[in-house]
Design a protein around this nucleic acid. Structure first.
Lengths: 245, 245
DNA sequence: CGACTATTTGACGCCAGTCAACACCGGTGG
DNA sequence: CCACCGGTGTTGACTGGCGTCAAATAGTCG
C-alpha cells in the first residue's frame, strides 16, 4: 500500500464488520487505488452530471451527497465518514444525479472504473462486497426518508447523531461517548430538512434534557439510552452482522 | 419462459432502456425465476428482518417499501411499478430493514438468491445490470429525500406523479397523458410525508390549477410542462440513457 | 339497503419557518 | 494592541404551512 493510502484500512474494516475479506481481496482492493488527493473543506468533490472515470473512497474527514433546489435550499442526502466508498454508485450510473462535497478537509482515494470492472469480472465475492457497500448507502438513505418524512425535528437530529456515532465506531473514530464532527449547525439543518435556527433550538433542548452536547465540532453523548429512545433509533438498518454475502 | 412469468419482459425492458441486454443474458435471467405468485392488495410481501432466500420481481401491479414508527406513522420509501426488482437489495443484505407491501393486487416472480449468486460468478455483465437496478432504487430514494426534506407539499405530490408517469412509460404502462395508479390518498400521504387531509387539499389545488386530476385510481395529466415546473422535476436521476455498464 | 372505506371540506392549533438583533470567535491588517 | 470583519451560534417575536379534529358526502361491496 502506498503510505499515503492509509485510511483504506477503514474501508476494509467497514467491510470486515459485515463479512470475511480475504488477504487476497484486500490486496486487490488496495492495488486498485490509482491516486490519493486532498480537498479543502467546502469544495465540491464531484459535480452532478459530470462524466466519471473514477470512484472515490473517503480516507479522512467528512463529506456528503447533496442536491439543491432552484430557490437555494439544499438537502444533504447522506453524510459520509472515513472508510465510505462515496461514489461507487457512479461506477454503473456513469454520471451522478447529485453533488458530492467536502464538509471538512478530506483525503480521498481514487479507483478507476476500469479496475472496478476488472473486479466484477475476476473477483465475484469482492464485487458482491462492493455491491453490498452501495446497498448499505441505500439503506441509510431509506432511513433518512423516514426521518425527514415522519420524525419530529428533535428526533431527526437525535437520530442523525446516533447513526454517526455507530458508523464512526465501525471506522474506529469514536471512543465510548464522544466523537469529532466538524459540521456547522447549517450542515445539520441541510441534512435533516430543517432551518439552522430551528436546529439551534433543538440542540439547546438536547443539551437541557441532558441527552447530548454538540459544540465546537465535537459531540458528547450524555445518555445514549434516552437518546436512542428519543430518536427511535434501531441499528438494524446498518446491517452490522458478519455473514457470507 | 413459463407462461405465467409474462411481465418479466417489463423488467428486461427497464434494463434495455439503460444498456444492451443480450439474448443469452435475457435467457439466464428468465431461467432464474423459480416461481410466480399472486398477492392481494394490502398484504405484506416481505416483512422487515425476515431471513430471505429469494428476491422478487414485480410483474404486475403496485407495491412499496415502507417503515413504521411506534406511534403508527408510516413512511413509504419507494413505490414500485411492474418490472421493478423489488428486493434485490435482500440478496446481499440478507434481511431487509423495511417492509415490502402490495398497494394493489400484484403478481411477483421469485428468484432464489442461489441463482443470483450464480449470475455474479458466471455472468458479470448481467450482474452489473442487476447492481445497476439497485443503484437506480438508491437514486430514486435520494430524490425522495430531497422531496420530503425540502419541497412544498404541492411540489412533492406533483413530483411523485411526474416520476411515476415516466417510470410507467418505461414499463409500457402509460400512453401519453394518462396512467392507472390504484392508490388511495392515504398511500400518497404516506409516500410524501404528509397527512391524507392535506394531500386531499393539494390534489384539489392541482385540479383547480389544471395541472392534473387523480381520481378513481387514474391520473390524467393536463399540462405536463407546468406540472414539471411546479415539481422542479428533472428526470436525470432516472438515468434513462443506454450506455455500456 | 347497510356497513365500511375513501374523499371532501371547514375550523382551529401547533411545529417549524422567517425575520431580526446580538454575541462570539478567529483572522487580518492598520 | 485594537478595530474590523465574516462566519457561526443564540435568542425572541411573529407568521404560516401543514396537522388535527370533526362531520358530511360519495363510492363500494356484501
Amino acid at each position: 500500500m502506498a503510505p499515503e493510502a492509509q485510511g483504506l484500512d477503514r474501508a476494509i474494516a467497514k467491510l470486515r464488520a459485515r463479512d470475511i475479506v480475504s488477504e487476497e481481496e484486500e490486496k486487490v482492493f488496495v492495488a486498485s487505488v490509482s491516486d490519493v488527493v486532498e480537498i479543502a473543506a467546502g469544495r465540491t468533490i464531484v459535480r452532478a452530471g459530470a462524466s466519471l472515470t473514477h470512484s472515490t473512497v473517503l480516507l479522512d474527514g467528512f463529506a456528503c451527497r447533496y442536491k439543491d433546489l432552484a430557490d437555494g435550499q439544499r438537502q444533504i442526502q447522506e453524510i459520509h465518514v472515513a472508510g465510505d466508498c462515496m461514489d461507487l454508485h457512479g461506477f454503473l450510473l456513469k454520471s451522478l444525479d447529485h453533488h458530492v462535497g467536502a464538509l471538512s478537509g478530506v483525503r480521498i482515494a481514487l479507483i478507476p472504473h476500469e479496475a472496478l470492472r476488472e473486479i466484477t469480472e475476476n473477483h465475484p465475492h469482492l464485487a458482491r462486497l462492493l455491491w453490498f457497500a452501495t446497498l448499505l448507502d441505500a439503506s441509510i438513505q431509506r432511513e433518512h426518508v423516514l426521518s425527514v418524512g415522519r420524525r419530529s425535528a428533535l428526533a431527526r437530529i437525535a437520530h442523525l447523531f446516533c447513526e454517526l456515532h455507530l458508523r464512526l465506531q465501525v471506522a474506529g473514530e469514536s471512543n465510548g461517548t464522544t466523537y469529532r464532527l466538524p459540521l456547522t449547525q447549517t450542515d445539520i439543518a441541510d441534512a435533516s430538512g430543517l432551518t439552522a435556527v430551528h436546529v439551534n433550538r433543538m440542540l439547546k433542548k438536547l443539551r437541557d434534557d441532558d441527552l447530548l452536547t454538540f459544540r465546537g465540532g465535537e459531540v458528547v453523548i450524555h445518555d445514549r439510552d434516552r437518546l436512542e429512545r428519543a430518536a427511535e433509533f434501531d441499528p438494524a438498518y446498518l446491517h452490522l452482522e458478519r455473514r457470507p454475502r
